[in-house]
């Protein structure tokens, strides 16, 4: 049987991040980005998922990495792809009954809706209009489909 928490390097860290019965393990997150991953998934203190986070875990491949484990929640494709914005090398393991049932990488989506705020104060999306922000992912960054403003870096600080 393949252990669900193979993502975690050593037994010591295994204590920090316990195996989960059902849910999702997000592995190979860029070190220091775990909290942003949680933010991007919309998990706040008020949601019900059991959540464990490990940051700066030693990783053979990456030096250091972060890991997020979510009990009783399987992430959808759309949610997974959002993670690619801040951590393109993350891998997603769907766990059912302690087993990894599915393992997938993240793909940067073509369009991002309602996730990022447009930094342009003059943009119509920053008003009380009944619309969600909408960005097209380009090589140069995220382009607002309303005002054409481009967010080239530091995307996380614009996450709603």
């Amino acid at each position: 049987m393949k252990r669900a928490d193979t993502a975690v390097g050593t037994d010591n860290e295994g204590l920090l991040v316990r195996r989960i019965q059902n849910g999702t393990v997000i592995d190979h997150i860029a070190a220091g980005e775990a909290l942003n991953v949680v933010k991007i998934l919309g998990i706040t203190g008020t949601t019900t998922e059991a959540l464990s986070i490990a940051t700066n875990v030693h990783s053979g491949q990456m030096g250091k990495k972060d890991i997020v484990k979510l009990s009783n929640r399987e992430l959808s494709k759309e949610e997974v792809d959002r993670i690619a914005l801040i951590s393109p090398h993350a891998t997603i393991n769907i766990i059912r009954n302690y087993k990894v049932c599915e393992k997938k990488g993240v793909e940067i989506p073509d369009v991002i809706e309602g996730l990022v705020r447009c930094p342009n104060p003059g943009c119509i999306t920053n008003t009380n209009e009944p619309i969600r922000s909408r960005f097209i992912v380009t090589a140069k960054g995220l382009r607002c489909t309303y005002c054409d403003w481009i967010i080239g870096r530091d995307i996380t600080s614009y996450i709603i």
């Binding site: 342009n120 003059g122 008003t127």
Partner: peptide
Amino acid sequence: PKEGAARLAAQFATVPVINAGDGAG
């Protein structure tokens, strides 16, 4: 005066929309 207003208008209109200038856009 807001940038992107014409695109928003086009989204909600059921008739054609012409942009005669939106903000600094």
